Amino acid sequence: MKQFETHRIFNIEKANEFNDLALDVFRFQFENNVVYQDFCQHLKKGPETVSHYLDIPFLPISFFKTHRVLSTQKEVETIFTSSGTTQSKTSKHLVPDIKLYENSFLRAFEYFYEAPEEICILALLPSYLEREGSSLIYMVDYLIKKSNHPDSGFYLHNLDELHRKLLDLKQKNTKTLLIGVSFALLDLAEQFPMKLNNTTVMETGGMKGRRKELIREELHHILTQGLGVDRIHSEYGMTELLSQAYSKGNGIFQTPPWMKIITRDTEDPLSIQAYGKTGGINVIDLANVYSCSFIATQDLGKTHANGSFEVLGRFDDSDIRGCNLMVL
């Protein structure tokens, strides 16, 4: 079975290159992914009828709960799973090439920030650490090891120790990234208010049932006040993807060159929504070449003409999980 030339994914420089590569990925997945091919054929879509990435069908994300979504016969190296609830099935993302994931998240991190070797990375992700199969934990653990800073590491419930570490790094004027799940960052901000002028605070994930959901503006206001930073950064990713988008404030996300966000009318799953209008979020993640690169998520958001986007909530009938969940 022919494998895809994955090096092409991370060398996109122009809009037409994205379109050409997206069409190549679509053809590859249509030919090699039985689940996706059946879905496309049901919609009467195929390589002969698709000439632009906007015409490509987006597979509902729920398929990752019920099917093996694979576009290769390579042996699966890793399986990432969603958190989910006891009442719902969890998503399973079968990953045949873990190096592809590492390449994707490392390049995206360096694209928006800097090489992890340049910073100290502290992770406050208790809900993710307490279960197996988290793609977020895999990514952050890799970045922590890559940072090679003696103070980089994970924190579970030891907020007092984290507080002391942050103040020590501040005194040393060490460039620091604190990435945390929303409820844990709120606990830290409320129990140990401080002013961090050398630290980037990045939230990911919602309250995970630990606290009442807040709209983004309220959450970020509490965190900026309690942690003494000008703005809160955010990460947007999910179990079913191999790439992430980042926001450096105000909930406005940007994607790396191999990822794109489109919105659809919530009443018409095959539509393309205009810029600035709220709709369901569709994700193109070309790094997902060995599963499915075209996914219709259960998130709500809006896109902007410059390629940025916002995440505004989730569909009412979906289970509450995933990254950067701020339910209105």
Results as ranks from 00 to 15, higher is better:
Asn32Tyr: 15
Asn33Trp: 06
Val34Met: 10
Val34Glu: 12
Lys44Phe: 10
Lys45Phe: 07
Val50Asp: 01
Pro60Ile: 14
His67Lys: 14
Thr72His: 08
Thr72Gln: 14
Phe80Arg: 08
Ser82Thr: 14
Thr85Leu: 06
Thr90Ser: 03
Thr90Arg: 10
Lys92Tyr: 09
Val95Arg: 07
Asp97Val: 09
Ile98Thr: 15
Tyr101Ile: 01
Arg107Gly: 10
Glu118Cys: 09
Glu118Phe: 13
Glu118Leu: 11
Cys120Pro: 05
Ile121Thr: 02
Leu122Tyr: 00
Leu125Phe: 01
Tyr128Leu: 08
Arg131Ser: 13
Glu132Gly: 10
Ser135Thr: 11
Leu136Arg: 00
Asn148Cys: 13
Phe154Asn: 00
His157Val: 07
Asp160Arg: 13
His163Val: 02
Arg164Cys: 04
Lys170Pro: 09
Leu178Gly: 03
Leu178Cys: 00
Leu178Tyr: 00
Gly180Glu: 00
Ala184Thr: 15
Ala184Cys: 03
Leu186Gly: 02
Leu188Asp: 00
Gln191Lys: 15
Phe192Arg: 03
Leu196Val: 14
Met202Cys: 04
Thr204Glu: 03
Gly206Asn: 14
Met207Ser: 14
Lys208Asn: 11
Gly209Ala: 10
Lys212Asn: 15
Glu213Val: 14
Glu213His: 15
Arg216Phe: 05
Arg216Pro: 01
Leu223Met: 02
Gly226Tyr: 01
His233Glu: 11
His233Met: 06
Gly237Cys: 03
Leu241Ile: 08
Gln244Asn: 05
Ala245Arg: 00
Gly251Met: 04
Phe253Asn: 00
Gln254Cys: 04
Gln254Asn: 05
Pro256Tyr: 02
Lys260Gln: 05
Thr263Phe: 03
Asp265Phe: 07
Pro269Phe: 14
Ser271Met: 12
Ala274Gln: 07
Ile281His: 05
Asn282Ala: 09
Val283Ser: 03
Val283Phe: 04
Val283Met: 10
Asp285Glu: 09
Ala287Thr: 12
Cys292Asp: 11
Gln298Val: 05
Gln298Asp: 07
Gly301Phe: 08
Lys302Asn: 06
Asp317His: 05
Asp319Cys: 03
Val327Ser: 10
